[in-house]
Amino acid sequence: MPRRRAADIMAAATTTLWRLAVLLTVVLAGVGSAAGEEDSFRSMKFQAQQVTPPGDFRPEVIGGKPVESGVYKEVVRITFQETAQGEPDTCTGVFLHGQGAVLTAGHCSCGILDSYRFVLKGTLDSATDAAKPAARYAIREPVRFPGYSCSPGAKNAGLDIAVFFVRNLDGLNIEPDKDKDGPLTRIASMHTVYTARARQLVVAGYGYTESGKLPTALMRAAVGIGSYFCSTGSFDGTSCVGFREFVLSTPGGDGPPRDTCGGDSGGPVYWYPPVQTDTDKNSFLPTEALVGITSRGLAFAHNLPGMPCGGGGVYTAVGRSDVLDWLLSLGVTVRTTEVPIATTTGGQAVQ
Protein backbone atom coordinates (compact mmCIF):
# COMPACT_ATOMS: atom_id res chain seq x y z
CA MET A 1 0.00 0.00 0.00
CA PRO A 2 1.78 3.16 -1.10
CA ARG A 3 2.49 5.55 1.73
CA ARG A 4 2.48 9.26 1.02
CA ARG A 5 5.93 10.23 2.15
CA ALA A 6 8.20 11.97 -0.35
CA ALA A 7 11.11 9.53 -0.18
CA ASP A 8 8.87 6.59 -0.95
CA ILE A 9 8.19 8.13 -4.34
CA MET A 10 11.82 8.82 -5.08
CA ALA A 11 12.56 5.21 -4.29
CA ALA A 12 9.83 4.00 -6.61
CA ALA A 13 11.34 5.88 -9.56
CA THR A 14 12.20 9.35 -10.68
CA THR A 15 9.03 9.45 -12.75
CA THR A 16 6.86 8.17 -9.90
CA LEU A 17 7.37 11.16 -7.72
CA TRP A 18 4.38 11.24 -5.43
CA ARG A 19 2.21 13.97 -4.51
CA LEU A 20 -1.14 15.10 -5.02
CA ALA A 21 -2.28 15.06 -8.49
CA VAL A 22 -3.51 18.47 -8.06
CA LEU A 23 -2.60 19.40 -4.62
CA LEU A 24 -3.14 19.60 -0.86
CA THR A 25 -2.10 20.86 2.79
CA VAL A 26 -1.95 19.88 6.48
CA VAL A 27 -3.39 19.82 9.73
CA LEU A 28 -5.16 22.16 11.66
CA ALA A 29 -8.36 23.30 12.66
CA GLY A 30 -9.21 26.28 14.64
CA VAL A 31 -7.48 29.29 13.24
CA GLY A 32 -9.42 32.17 11.77
CA SER A 33 -7.98 34.33 9.04
CA ALA A 34 -6.65 37.72 9.90
CA ALA A 35 -8.17 40.82 8.36
CA GLY A 36 -7.22 41.05 4.70
CA GLU A 37 -6.16 37.38 4.65
CA GLU A 38 -9.47 35.64 4.05
CA ASP A 39 -9.75 31.97 3.17
CA SER A 40 -11.30 31.65 -0.29
CA PHE A 41 -12.74 28.26 0.67
CA ARG A 42 -14.82 29.86 3.43
CA SER A 43 -17.40 31.07 0.93
CA MET A 44 -21.01 30.48 0.00
CA LYS A 45 -19.92 29.08 -3.37
CA PHE A 46 -17.94 26.32 -1.66
CA GLN A 47 -20.69 25.71 0.90
CA ALA A 48 -23.25 25.20 -1.86
CA GLN A 49 -21.32 22.11 -2.91
CA GLN A 50 -21.32 20.64 0.58
CA VAL A 51 -25.06 20.52 1.18
CA THR A 52 -26.42 19.67 -2.26
CA PRO A 53 -28.67 16.56 -2.11
CA PRO A 54 -26.60 13.43 -2.95
CA GLY A 55 -28.43 12.79 -6.22
CA ASP A 56 -27.67 16.28 -7.53
CA PHE A 57 -24.05 16.51 -6.41
CA ARG A 58 -21.48 17.33 -9.05
CA PRO A 59 -17.94 17.92 -7.74
CA GLU A 60 -16.22 21.01 -8.99
CA VAL A 61 -12.48 21.47 -8.91
CA ILE A 62 -11.67 24.01 -6.23
CA GLY A 63 -7.98 24.00 -5.57
CA GLY A 64 -4.85 22.71 -7.13
CA LYS A 65 -3.29 25.98 -6.14
CA PRO A 66 -1.23 27.50 -3.31
CA VAL A 67 -2.93 28.38 -0.05
CA GLU A 68 -3.27 32.11 0.52
CA SER A 69 -0.91 33.94 2.87
CA GLY A 70 -2.33 34.06 6.36
CA VAL A 71 -4.43 30.89 5.91
CA TYR A 72 -3.56 27.52 7.51
CA LYS A 73 -0.70 29.12 9.44
CA GLU A 74 -0.54 26.07 11.69
CA VAL A 75 0.34 23.60 8.92
CA VAL A 76 3.91 22.35 9.22
CA ARG A 77 6.46 21.30 6.61
CA ILE A 78 8.47 18.40 8.06
CA THR A 79 11.85 17.37 6.66
CA PHE A 80 13.98 14.48 7.91
CA GLN A 81 16.16 11.52 6.97
CA GLU A 82 15.04 7.94 7.47
CA THR A 83 18.61 6.66 7.41
CA ALA A 84 22.01 8.33 7.73
CA GLN A 85 22.80 7.64 4.06
CA GLY A 86 19.27 8.24 2.80
CA GLU A 87 17.89 11.14 0.82
CA PRO A 88 16.01 13.91 2.67
CA ASP A 89 12.33 13.14 3.05
CA THR A 90 9.27 15.37 3.37
CA CYS A 91 6.01 15.04 5.27
CA THR A 92 3.32 17.45 6.43
CA GLY A 93 1.86 18.01 9.86
CA VAL A 94 -0.31 20.25 12.00
CA PHE A 95 0.85 22.35 14.92
CA LEU A 96 -1.58 21.98 17.82
CA HIS A 97 -1.98 25.45 19.22
CA GLY A 98 0.07 26.64 22.15
CA GLN A 99 1.09 23.14 23.18
CA GLY A 100 4.34 22.56 21.28
CA ALA A 101 2.87 19.48 19.61
CA VAL A 102 2.87 18.56 15.92
CA LEU A 103 0.38 15.94 14.73
CA THR A 104 1.43 13.88 11.70
CA ALA A 105 1.32 10.37 10.23
CA GLY A 106 2.91 7.54 12.18
CA HIS A 107 5.09 6.53 9.21
CA CYS A 108 6.51 10.06 9.18
CA SER A 109 7.93 9.48 12.69
CA CYS A 110 10.32 6.65 11.84
CA GLY A 111 13.35 8.72 10.81
CA ILE A 112 16.50 9.83 12.63
CA LEU A 113 15.36 12.08 15.47
CA ASP A 114 18.13 14.66 15.15
CA SER A 115 17.40 15.11 11.45
CA TYR A 116 13.85 16.42 11.91
CA ARG A 117 13.02 20.04 11.15
CA PHE A 118 9.55 21.59 11.49
CA VAL A 119 8.64 24.88 9.80
CA LEU A 120 5.22 26.49 10.22
CA LYS A 121 3.44 27.87 7.17
CA GLY A 122 2.95 31.11 9.10
CA THR A 123 6.73 31.38 9.31
CA LEU A 124 7.15 30.72 5.60
CA ASP A 125 4.50 33.34 4.80
CA SER A 126 6.50 36.02 6.59
CA ALA A 127 9.98 34.93 5.50
CA THR A 128 11.98 36.98 3.02
CA ASP A 129 14.65 35.86 0.58
CA ALA A 130 17.26 37.22 2.97
CA ALA A 131 15.81 35.51 6.05
CA LYS A 132 15.89 31.75 6.55
CA PRO A 133 12.60 30.55 8.11
CA ALA A 134 13.01 29.62 11.76
CA ALA A 135 12.73 25.85 12.25
CA ARG A 136 11.56 23.89 15.26
CA TYR A 137 13.31 20.77 16.51
CA ALA A 138 12.03 17.65 18.24
CA ILE A 139 12.81 17.73 21.97
CA ARG A 140 12.25 13.98 22.49
CA GLU A 141 11.23 10.80 20.70
CA PRO A 142 7.89 11.03 18.91
CA VAL A 143 4.89 9.45 20.56
CA ARG A 144 3.15 7.02 18.20
CA PHE A 145 -0.46 5.95 18.49
CA PRO A 146 -0.76 2.75 20.56
CA GLY A 147 -0.09 -0.29 18.38
CA TYR A 148 1.77 1.55 15.63
CA SER A 149 5.11 -0.03 14.67
CA CYS A 150 7.92 1.25 12.43
CA SER A 151 8.94 -2.34 11.64
CA PRO A 152 8.74 -3.25 7.93
CA GLY A 153 5.55 -5.10 7.12
CA ALA A 154 3.75 -4.06 10.29
CA LYS A 155 -0.03 -3.78 10.03
CA ASN A 156 -0.63 -0.13 10.89
CA ALA A 157 -3.92 0.63 9.17
CA GLY A 158 -6.04 2.86 11.37
CA LEU A 159 -3.06 3.54 13.66
CA ASP A 160 -1.04 5.82 11.38
CA ILE A 161 -0.72 8.78 13.78
CA ALA A 162 2.15 10.29 15.79
CA VAL A 163 2.87 13.42 17.80
CA PHE A 164 6.18 15.29 17.99
CA PHE A 165 6.86 17.76 20.78
CA VAL A 166 8.98 20.55 19.36
CA ARG A 167 10.68 23.79 20.29
CA ASN A 168 12.30 26.71 18.51
CA LEU A 169 16.01 26.86 19.27
CA ASP A 170 16.22 30.46 18.03
CA GLY A 171 13.85 31.61 20.76
CA LEU A 172 11.65 33.45 18.28
CA ASN A 173 7.92 33.76 18.82
CA ILE A 174 6.39 31.96 15.86
CA GLU A 175 3.21 30.68 17.49
CA PRO A 176 0.25 30.67 15.08
CA ASP A 177 -2.21 33.47 15.71
CA LYS A 178 -5.07 32.61 18.05
CA ASP A 179 -8.49 32.86 16.49
CA LYS A 180 -11.48 34.68 17.95
CA ASP A 181 -12.77 31.49 19.53
CA GLY A 182 -9.56 30.68 21.41
CA PRO A 183 -6.23 28.95 20.92
CA LEU A 184 -7.29 25.30 20.75
CA THR A 185 -7.31 23.21 17.59
CA ARG A 186 -10.85 22.37 16.46
CA ILE A 187 -11.49 18.73 15.49
CA ALA A 188 -14.63 17.10 14.09
CA SER A 189 -15.63 13.46 13.65
CA MET A 190 -16.53 11.89 10.33
CA HIS A 191 -19.95 11.21 11.84
CA THR A 192 -20.40 14.98 12.07
CA VAL A 193 -19.28 15.35 8.45
CA TYR A 194 -21.74 12.66 7.39
CA THR A 195 -24.57 14.24 9.37
CA ALA A 196 -23.87 17.58 7.68
CA ARG A 197 -24.11 15.84 4.27
CA ALA A 198 -20.70 17.10 3.17
CA ARG A 199 -19.60 15.71 -0.18
CA GLN A 200 -16.06 17.08 -0.31
CA LEU A 201 -13.22 17.63 2.13
CA VAL A 202 -10.13 19.80 1.69
CA VAL A 203 -6.67 18.25 1.73
CA ALA A 204 -3.42 20.15 2.06
CA GLY A 205 0.28 19.39 2.01
CA TYR A 206 3.83 20.03 0.88
CA GLY A 207 4.08 16.90 -1.27
CA TYR A 208 4.77 16.37 -4.94
CA THR A 209 2.46 17.92 -7.50
CA GLU A 210 1.47 16.48 -10.88
CA SER A 211 4.58 18.19 -12.26
CA GLY A 212 6.76 15.73 -10.32
CA LYS A 213 8.27 18.49 -8.19
CA LEU A 214 7.94 19.55 -4.58
CA PRO A 215 6.18 22.93 -4.32
CA THR A 216 7.61 25.89 -2.45
CA ALA A 217 4.16 26.77 -1.13
CA LEU A 218 1.54 24.83 0.79
CA MET A 219 -0.98 23.39 -1.69
CA ARG A 220 -4.61 22.35 -1.25
CA ALA A 221 -7.60 20.95 -3.13
CA ALA A 222 -11.18 19.85 -2.51
CA VAL A 223 -11.60 16.09 -2.99
CA GLY A 224 -14.77 14.03 -3.13
CA ILE A 225 -15.58 11.64 -0.27
CA GLY A 226 -15.40 8.03 -1.48
CA SER A 227 -16.29 6.42 1.86
CA TYR A 228 -17.10 8.18 5.14
CA PHE A 229 -16.33 5.21 7.38
CA CYS A 230 -14.75 2.31 5.40
CA SER A 231 -17.52 0.29 7.03
CA THR A 232 -17.06 -2.68 4.66
CA GLY A 233 -13.33 -2.92 5.40
CA SER A 234 -12.23 -2.12 1.85
CA PHE A 235 -12.63 0.36 -1.00
CA ASP A 236 -12.04 -0.65 -4.63
CA GLY A 237 -9.79 -3.50 -3.53
CA THR A 238 -7.81 -1.54 -0.92
CA SER A 239 -8.27 -2.61 2.70
CA CYS A 240 -9.14 0.04 5.26
CA VAL A 241 -10.24 -0.09 8.89
CA GLY A 242 -13.89 0.56 9.54
CA PHE A 243 -14.68 3.74 11.48
CA ARG A 244 -10.95 4.44 11.94
CA GLU A 245 -10.24 5.51 8.36
CA PHE A 246 -12.04 7.11 5.42
CA VAL A 247 -11.45 7.40 1.68
CA LEU A 248 -11.21 10.46 -0.55
CA SER A 249 -11.36 9.92 -4.28
CA THR A 250 -12.25 12.15 -7.22
CA PRO A 251 -14.94 10.43 -9.34
CA GLY A 252 -13.89 9.69 -12.91
CA GLY A 253 -14.92 12.13 -15.59
CA ASP A 254 -15.22 15.13 -13.29
CA GLY A 255 -12.17 17.01 -14.43
CA PRO A 256 -8.50 16.57 -13.49
CA PRO A 257 -7.68 14.27 -10.57
CA ARG A 258 -7.40 15.73 -7.11
CA ASP A 259 -5.42 13.67 -4.66
CA THR A 260 -2.58 13.64 -2.15
CA CYS A 261 0.86 12.25 -2.97
CA GLY A 262 4.37 11.76 -1.56
CA GLY A 263 5.23 14.46 0.94
CA ASP A 264 1.60 15.06 1.89
CA SER A 265 1.60 12.29 4.50
CA GLY A 266 0.42 13.60 7.85
CA GLY A 267 -1.15 16.64 6.19
CA PRO A 268 -4.56 17.83 7.33
CA VAL A 269 -7.96 17.06 5.96
CA TYR A 270 -10.39 19.88 6.75
CA TRP A 271 -14.15 20.05 6.83
CA TYR A 272 -15.77 23.44 6.25
CA PRO A 273 -18.99 23.44 8.34
CA PRO A 274 -22.23 24.79 6.87
CA VAL A 275 -23.63 28.23 7.58
CA GLN A 276 -24.73 28.75 11.20
CA THR A 277 -26.84 31.35 13.01
CA ASP A 278 -25.76 32.99 16.26
CA THR A 279 -27.97 34.02 19.16
CA ASP A 280 -28.60 37.38 17.47
CA LYS A 281 -29.84 35.55 14.34
CA ASN A 282 -26.80 36.62 12.32
CA SER A 283 -25.52 34.07 9.82
CA PHE A 284 -21.83 33.18 9.69
CA LEU A 285 -19.45 30.59 8.28
CA PRO A 286 -17.68 28.69 11.11
CA THR A 287 -13.96 28.02 11.11
CA GLU A 288 -12.81 24.86 9.35
CA ALA A 289 -12.30 21.74 11.47
CA LEU A 290 -9.66 19.01 11.23
CA VAL A 291 -11.17 15.58 10.53
CA GLY A 292 -8.19 13.50 9.42
CA ILE A 293 -4.63 13.24 8.18
CA THR A 294 -3.17 11.75 5.00
CA SER A 295 -2.06 8.14 5.34
CA ARG A 296 -1.64 6.20 2.07
CA GLY A 297 -2.79 5.80 -1.53
CA LEU A 298 -5.33 3.34 -2.87
CA ALA A 299 -3.56 0.17 -3.99
CA PHE A 300 -5.41 -0.41 -7.26
CA ALA A 301 -6.35 3.12 -8.23
CA HIS A 302 -6.14 4.56 -11.74
CA ASN A 303 -3.29 6.97 -11.08
CA LEU A 304 -1.70 9.58 -13.28
CA PRO A 305 0.72 8.11 -15.85
CA GLY A 306 4.09 7.40 -14.25
CA MET A 307 2.93 8.46 -10.77
CA PRO A 308 1.62 6.46 -7.78
CA CYS A 309 -1.07 9.04 -7.03
CA GLY A 310 -4.07 10.72 -8.55
CA GLY A 311 -6.53 7.89 -7.97
CA GLY A 312 -7.50 8.48 -4.38
CA GLY A 313 -6.25 7.71 -0.88
CA VAL A 314 -6.95 6.43 2.61
CA TYR A 315 -6.98 8.90 5.51
CA THR A 316 -6.82 8.37 9.25
CA ALA A 317 -9.80 9.83 11.13
CA VAL A 318 -8.72 11.96 14.11
CA GLY A 319 -12.13 12.83 15.56
CA ARG A 320 -12.46 9.33 17.05
CA SER A 321 -12.81 9.00 20.80
CA ASP A 322 -9.70 6.81 21.10
CA VAL A 323 -7.57 9.43 19.32
CA LEU A 324 -8.98 12.27 21.41
CA ASP A 325 -8.39 10.27 24.62
CA TRP A 326 -4.83 9.52 23.50
CA LEU A 327 -4.10 13.19 22.81
CA LEU A 328 -5.50 14.11 26.22
CA SER A 329 -3.26 11.51 27.87
CA LEU A 330 -0.30 13.34 26.30
CA GLY A 331 -1.47 16.64 27.73
CA VAL A 332 -2.74 17.85 24.35
CA THR A 333 -6.21 19.35 24.49
CA VAL A 334 -8.44 20.18 21.53
CA ARG A 335 -11.98 21.40 20.90
CA THR A 336 -14.56 19.24 19.18
CA THR A 337 -17.12 20.49 16.70
CA GLU A 338 -20.46 18.73 16.42
CA VAL A 339 -23.74 19.34 14.61
CA PRO A 340 -25.48 21.59 15.24
CA ILE A 341 -22.45 23.78 15.72
CA ALA A 342 -22.48 25.91 18.86
CA THR A 343 -23.78 29.38 18.06
CA THR A 344 -21.04 31.95 18.37
CA THR A 345 -20.00 35.02 16.48
CA GLY A 346 -16.44 33.78 16.02
CA GLY A 347 -16.88 32.75 12.39
CA GLN A 348 -16.52 34.72 9.19
CA ALA A 349 -19.68 36.69 8.42
CA VAL A 350 -21.68 35.58 5.41
CA GLN A 351 -21.74 38.13 2.61
Rank of each mutant, 00 (worst) to 15 (best):
P268L: 09
V193M: 10
S295A: 12
A221W: 00
E175K: 05
E245K: 07
L113Q: 15
A301R: 09
V26W: 04
R296E: 08
F165Q: 15
V27H: 06
V67E: 03
M10E: 11
G346F: 13
V119D: 12
L20R: 09
V203R: 03
F164R: 01
G212S: 07
A21S: 12
K155F: 11
T15Y: 08
G310Y: 07
P215K: 06
G171T: 01
E37M: 06
G226V: 04
V76T: 06
D160F: 02
D236T: 11
G153N: 08
R144A: 10
V202A: 11
A289Q: 11
E74I: 06
T250M: 14
A196W: 00
P256H: 05
L28S: 12
T344S: 14
Y116I: 03
Q49P: 00
G255M: 05
G253T: 12
L304E: 12
R58M: 13
T79S: 10
A196H: 02
T343D: 08
S239Y: 04
V291K: 10
Q351W: 07
G266H: 09
F118G: 09
Q47N: 14
T52S: 13
M44L: 13
W18V: 14
R220Y: 04
D39C: 08
G242V: 03
T337I: 12
F229L: 12
C91A: 15
L120S: 08
I62G: 00
T90I: 15
F145D: 07
A188L: 03
A105G: 06
S249P: 00
E141P: 00
G313S: 14
Y270C: 06
K73V: 09
Y272L: 14
F235D: 05
L159D: 09
K281V: 05
Q200A: 12
G224R: 04
